[in-house]
Design a binder for these strands. Structure first.
Lengths: 169, 169
DNA sequence: TTTTATTTTCAATAATTTCTGAAACTTTAG
DNA sequence: CTAAAGTTTCAGAAATTATTGAAAATAAAA
């Protein structure tokens, strides 16, 4: 199969994965395309290859930079900007985890903590204790996920990771 | 704070978490509400409490059953159906993982495997080898996540889990 | 059976999110 | 400075997704 066709197939699939997880399709597609290119790519080339508007590409490139998934690079003798993806999967995973933890887990975690420290009134004894228990369980579970994700990003060698998995299976 | 108010605060936050991860707000809200109720709740009560239409509640209750996050239960002497959430967080996590793995990870994984077994033509040597390497890295990473999630769901006791975390931190 | 309660379906509508494209802005070159 | 190249912004359009509500279907009771 032709390289560019293979890249575009990956772009499609990665785009779908993105939308399923609340990431704009174009953003995921642009990221996918840059991942599969060894060097920096210009806005123009992204626009043409993925058939997206200038505004869209510009906005999503900026967002990808915010997420630390890509870097702006310059090419000798070229006036325009080029964009190059981080090619290390672990770094990539860490960047994504950081973003989503910050935006989505923190609010949940802080509500859970707040509710744990609040006296609940009304309802039956059973209802109150069920509520309290569920909040406690959820809080513990979220903390666990949090620790686990820290662990994941701390590992920069797959060797360690694989051994751990083996050890625990 | 009043129990029902506390429940509704949780419902709101859980609903937001849902939408950020591609789950319809109502579905996440209904799940959140049922989680915080010790016994089965009727469609009517969900509609009134969360101010959602009958159709919406009906559809999402069915979807939650599909996901195995809730069960339909009947109450003695009552004609209508009641719905009760699974209250075990681990079971809950497992149900969610199962669904999302099936719908979203499998397609990625199968494309990666397919691309690994395809000969790539065109482009420079560097481009081809970069592409091949990235696909390989991604495939390994996805497999790793997969193993890790299996591990997570196999653990039904937090004790084991916590020891593992401690062991590896 | 007929009536009443309950559940399901789905076309239409609403809400939200994403994308476009042209104008404004900024930067660099001449 | 002026002109050209490149980038950013953002109001409106398009696309997608979620929700409603009323009618149809089903199930239970009388």
């Amino acid at each position: 199969m032709d390289l560019e066709k293979a890249r575009l197939e990956f772009v499609q699939t990665w785009g779908n994965l993105g939308t399923a997880w609340g990431i704009p399709r174009s953003m995921a597609q642009i990221h996918a395309y840059l991942m599969m290119r060894p060097d920096g790519v210009s806005t123009e080339e992204v626009m043409e290859t993925l058939m997206l508007s200038r505004g869209n590409v510009n906005t999503n490139l900026r967002e990808l930079i915010n997420w630390r998934l890509i870097d702006k690079v310059s090419k000798l003798g070229e006036r325009k900007d080029f964009y190059k993806a981080k090619h290390d999967i672990t770094e990539m995973a860490q960047a994504i985890l950081d973003q989503r933890k910050k935006k989505e887990f923190l609010p949940v975690q802080s509500l859970l903590i707040q509710l744990k420290n609040t006296d609940i009134t009304g309802g039956t004894d059973e209802e109150r204790s069920h509520f309290t228990q569920m909040i406690k369980d959820l809080d513990e579970f979220v903390s666990l996920l949090d620790q686990l994700s820290d662990l994941l990003v701390k590992m920069n060698s797959n060797m360690v990771f694989k051994r751990m998995i083996k050890l625990l299976s």
